[in-house]
Simulated scan of single mutants.
Amino acid sequence: METYEKIRLARELNQWSQEEMAEKLEMSPSGYARIERGEVRLNIEKLEQIAQVLNIDISDLIKKDVNGITIQIKDSDNNQNIGNVNLFGNDASEIQKLNLIIQHKDELLAQKNQELIMIKEMFELLKQQIKNQ
């Protein structure tokens, strides 16, 4: 994941608009948007400023990790971790795994629904038997 993508992700995790982020960085919204599009080569001072605003370590923005990255967002006092996202290098396989989990969940729900229908039918049969006695 590129630095500009990490910046955008961290901003979104904070639930800030690009305009809010630009204001925090004391720059124009269009200038900040260029950062998130990867159109600007950031110097170390600007990266430090962005990391400070996002309350993350600058190394999280610049390090290249083949296996993925983890971004931790802390409260304003740097005490409590309020958000944690782990991004893997192979998004397609992660999405496929999640889809399989969802599919399995859907199959289990369908099975439970069938069991409920059978239980209701058995209950009705028992009621009729009791009536007929």
Rank of each mutant, 00 (worst) to 15 (best):
S59H: 14
S59Y: 11
D60S: 07
L61H: 00
L61K: 02
L61E: 00
I62M: 01
K63Q: 07
K64Q: 05
D65W: 09
D65S: 10
V66K: 13
V66P: 12
V66S: 14
N67G: 13
G68D: 01
G68C: 06
G68Y: 01
G68E: 03
I69Y: 10
I69C: 00
I69D: 06
T70W: 00
I71M: 01
S76R: 13
S76F: 02
D77S: 11
N78M: 10
N79R: 12
N79C: 09
Q80P: 07
Q80M: 14
N81V: 06
N81M: 09
I82T: 00
G83E: 11
G83S: 10
N84K: 02
N84Y: 01
V85Q: 07
N86F: 10
L87P: 02
L87W: 00
F88I: 04
G89P: 04
G89V: 03
N90W: 00
N90I: 04
N90Q: 12
D91G: 12
A92G: 08
A92I: 15
S93G: 05
E94R: 07
E94C: 00
E94V: 03
E94H: 00
I95W: 05
Q96K: 10
Q96E: 13
K97P: 07
K97E: 08
K97H: 08
K97C: 04
L98H: 08
L98P: 01
N99R: 06
N99V: 05
L100N: 12
L100T: 09
L100K: 15
I101V: 13
K105T: 15
D106M: 02
D106C: 05
E107M: 14
E107I: 06
L108V: 09
L109Y: 15
L109V: 11
A110Y: 03
Q111R: 15
